[in-house]
Each structure stands twice: as structure tokens, then as C-alpha cells.
Amino acid sequence: MFPAQFEYHRPGSIDEALALLGEYGDDAKLLAGGHSLIPSMKLRLLEPKHLIDLGNIASLKGVRVEGDTVAVGALTTHYGVESSPEAKGALPLLCEVAGQIADPQVRNRGTMGGSLANADPAADWPATALALDAEFICKSDAGERKVPASEWFQGLFTTALEEGEILCGLRFGKLPERTAATYLKLQHPASRFAVVGVSAAVTTDSAGKCVQARIGITGVGTHAARAAKTERLLEGRVLDPANIAAAAALADEGFDAGSDMHFSESDRRELCRAYVERALLGVLERANAGQFQP
């Protein structure tokens, strides 16, 4: 309950933050919303000597529509996304996901960038970042680097973020016409993280044939990943319940699913397949109703 001592820094700009990061290196942790970091510090699982609070850097906050892209500052809170008229107008899936994260208080403080940089295997955003092929904007002394979502998640709490880098924002490109999407989550009974979270964005043609399927899954493996086999099976076929069932049956393949006190590996795999199927049926329903992402 009582974190160890640390020195607190509150840079006013990204450059200042980078300088501090350069100075303190491994002794420093970046503080965004802090809703994973602070609990870990309270349990003294983490005892950083320096905390660099990014909360004062205005340029890291907010949702902006820039042409065809939706840009979300890394320090934008989940509620900031959930309640953003820009996101609602341009990419409503983001609001749908944000509203399902943890609880209102956590959504008020926790940030999209913090969550994606932490890469908790059961966090919600990673599934959607994958399904929407988000671009991760990282900054360091060397300048800006863009990492595609497909390369971001590398392992348990491990991402492509390099030493000395700060994740500054996410860019979500325009989805193809006629893309319907949804996020379906089985909430962990205690932690409220995802036991399985499925973000599905599927593009169909006017005949109902699946042109492109992007399915991000969180909670099942050591890190979020795409359901590659399911996607491949769907693409080129009609998005209908039979094809969905067949494709969903492959959803857990490639995931290194583990067991814990609540769910066995078999449970996780089974739930993964069921949730993928239901997410896709949800997408189909939306597609049939003409509810596409703008």
C-alpha cells in the first residue's frame, strides 16, 4: 500500500521528458495514467527511483481527426476516447472498446498509450490496436519512429518500444468501405481485465463476401495477437454463420494459452473460439444492418 521512495519529475514537453529518460535510463519509469504502475509500486513489485510524469504534456492528449486518420495522443484517457465526439464520428469502435475497460474511475485516469506500452496480456486496447492496424508513434532523441501494430506486441509485457523511446500516440487509418466492427469481451470476474477480448473488423462486399478480416485477441496468450487462421479462412468467403463457425474454430491456434486459478488452458481456448464466433456474428449483424464504421 506504501510505495518506496522515488524522485518525481513533471516535464512540460516531450523533449524534456526524453532528456529525463536519457538521464535516468533504467532507473526511471514513465508515468501516464499510472493505473498499472501505481498498484505495482504500492505492492512494491516495482520500485523505480525516478518517475517521469507525462501528465503535464498537453500535446500528448486528445483525439484528433486528421484527414483520413484518427490520431489519439498516448496520454488520452480511456474516458477521453469513450466520450470523444471525434472518435465517435470517425471510428466508433474506439469508443465501444474504451467504455468496456475496467471501471469508470479507471477509465478517467488510465490512458490508451499507457495501456499499449505496458502490454498487459489481458488489457483491452491491444486487441483493437491489432484489429485496426494502428500505427504506434514513438519518439526518441533520434526522432520519430512508426511501428505497425503487427510488430508492436512481442511478448509478456514486452513491446517494440526501445530504450529511450516514448510512445507518443496512435494513428488509426481509414478503414475500407463497408467495414463493420465490434469488441466483445469476457470480463474477468475479479480483475475486470479481459479473460478473452475480441476486436473484429470485417470488410464485406455488397454480396456479403468477406474482403478483409482483422481479428485481434487479447487475454488468451502471453500477448495480444491476431487470429490469423480465422482471418484467412474468412477472406474470400461469404460472411455467414456457417463460415464464421468454421473460421472461429481455428481462432485459438497459435496462441500460447496458459492456466490460472480461474481458467484452465482448455477453458481459455474454448472461450476464445466462442467469443470470436460471437464477435463475428455481431459483426455480421451490424453489416446486415448497414452499421459500418464511417
Binding site: 480461474h262 481458467f263 484452465s264 477453458d267
Partner: peptide, 11 residues
Amino acid sequence: VTRSTILSALR
């Protein structure tokens, strides 16, 4: 009787 109880019993 958790979800896991039910799923594993059904399996």
C-alpha cells in the same frame, strides 16, 4: 461453480 467448472464438466 465457476464458468471453468461448467466448461470442464461439459467437456
